[in-house]
Design a protein around this nucleic acid. Structure first.
Lengths: 223, 223
DNA sequence: CCAATAGTGTCTGTTAGACAGTATTGA
DNA sequence: TCAATACTGTCTAACAGACACTATTGG
C-alpha cells in the first residue's frame, strides 16, 4: 500500500574527547563508495535482525568500529532527506558520545584518529554539519548540566572540572564561584585522595554521584 | 549486502495545547490494524517519493491529518526497536508541536480530540511513553527558554505568559520577578494595546521577538 | 624557604523575592 | 466609588564575582 520505498536507516556517532586543550572528534577514512577515501563519522546500518533499538545499534557500531562502548552516549537528533546519501532517501540517527582521552587510549583496541572540531576538513555526507550541532549541544548543556564531566576520567578534581568547563564553554568561569557552587550542590562525592600530581597542593578527587547529572541553575554565562 | 531488512520509518506528532488550565494532547482513533480502535498520536509513514526530510514529513502529516501546520514544531527524539510496532522493526521520529487553543480552533478544519496529559488512557504502540517524554521536555525547556510561549496566541500579555509558565512548570513563579526579568531581557516587543479584557486594568500586549527564543538564565526553579 | 597549586573567608555588587504602593479598567 | 487586575518602587535576602588569605605539596 505505501507508494514509496523504505528509507536507508543508519546510525552515526560523534565521539568527542579533549586532547591538547581542544575538543576533538573521532573520524575514520571511508573505504567504500560513496565518499571513498573521505573522512567520516563512525557509523553503519541498523541491523534489524540483531539490534534491539537505536541505542543498541550505536553501541554495536562503537564496539565494532572503535573497540569499546563509551562511558556516556546520548541521542542528538535524526537527520533525513533524499540527497544527503547518494544511495537514496536516508535517515541517520545521530549519537553524541563523550570519553576522556585516557579512557580512549586504554579501552580502544583500534588506533583512532582525532581531529580538532574547530578546524575540520570537508567530511563525507553532511557530517560537518552534524559535528557542529553536536558541539553546540555539548556547549549548551554545559551551561546547566554536568555533561562535560564525561570528558574527564571517572575520578577527577574540581580544578580539572573547572578547566574542562572553561574549555567546552569557551569563556572564563570564576574559580571561587565554580568551586563553591559545585561543592554546595551535592553532585560530587569524594573518591579517595592523593593522586600525587606535579607541583603544588594535591587536589581532592571526586566522582559524579550517579543520580544527579543536572544542575538547577546554569554554571556558565559569565560565572 | 546488508543481511537485514530495512526498518519501517514513521513520524509521530505530539501536538500539545492548553485547555481548561491543563496541558492536553491531540489524539486520533486508529481506524486500521494494528491497534484499530485505540487512541494514538497522529503519525504516518515517511514518503520517500515526496518528503524532503523528517520535518517536511511531519508538516505533511500535520496538514493531512489535522488540517494545518503548527506554529511551533521541533524534533523530540527517535524511538526504535523490533517490537514496538507489530508490523516489524520500526523507527519513529517524534516531533513536539505547540499551539494555542485559539489557533487550534480556528485553523483546524477537522474536529480534534484533546486529552489531558495527566490522565491518558492506554494508547496504541508506545505512545504513552512518548507523550510523557514530550511533556518532560516542555517542562525542562520551560526553565530556560521561551518555549511555553508557543502555547499562547501570537499576541499575549505578561500576566498571560506568567500563568502559562506556572501551568507548564507546575510551580508558582514570583510575579514581580517574572515581569521584571521578561521585560528587562528584551525578548518581547510591544504589539499594540487594548485587548479590551474583562475586569481590571487592561494588560499591554506583546509578541516574541523572532530572533530570541532562549533566555540566558532559567525562568523557573523557585523564581 | 620559595614557587605553585588547592581551598577558604569575606567584602561587595547584582539580582531574586516580598510587599506595598500607584495606575487603569468595568460595574 | 469600589473591586479587580496591571504595573512599579523599594526593602531585604541570597548569591555571584573579586580578592586576599591560608593550606599543602615539590624543589
Amino acid at each position: 500500500m505505501p507508494e514509496h520505498e523504505s528509507p536507508i536507516v543508519t546510525v552515526d556517532i560523534v565521539l568527542l574527547t579533549l586532547e591538547d586543550e581542544q575538543l576533538k572528534v573521532t573520524l575514520m577514512e571511508r573505504t567504500k563508495e560513496p565518499f571513498a577515501g573521505r573522512l567520516a563519522l563512525p557509523g553503519g546500518y541498523v541491523h534489524t535482525n540483531t539490534d534491539q533499538n537505536g541505542d543498541d545499534a550505536a553501541r554495536r557500531i562503537m564496539t565494532t568500529k572503535l573497540g569499546f562502548a563509551p562511558s556516556h552516549m546520548e541521542q542528538l537528533e535524526t537527520i533525513s532527506g533524499p540527497t544527503r546519501d547518494p544511495r537514496g532517501w536516508s535517515v541517520s540517527i545521530v549519537y553524541v558520545a563523550l570519553i576522556s582521552r585516557e579512557a580512549l587510549a586504554s579501552h580502544s583496541a583500534i588506533p583512532l584518529h582525532l581531529y580538532p572540531v574547530a578546524a575540520l576538513p570537508e567530511l563525507a555526507f553532511d557530517h560537518n554539519k552534524i559535528v557542529r550541532r553536536a558541539v553546540e549541544r555539548l556547549r549548551s548543556k554545559g551551561t546547566y548540566s554536568t555533561l562535560p564531566c564525561h570528558l574527564l576520567p571517572a575520578r577527577f578534581s574540581i580544578p580539572q572540572m573547572h578547566h574542562v568547563f572553561e574549555l567546552v564553554l569557551g569563556v572564563p568561569l570564576n574559580r571561587t564561584s565554580f568551586t563553591r557552587k559545585v561543592s554546595e550542590m551535592g553532585i560530587l562525592e569524594l573518591a579517595g585522595k592523593e593522586p600525587a600530581a606535579g607541583r603544588g597542593r594535591t587536589a581532592a578527587q571526586y566522582r559524579l554521584k550517579e543520580e544527579v547529572s543536572f544542575f538547577h541553575r546554569p554554571l556558565g554565562d559569565g560565572m
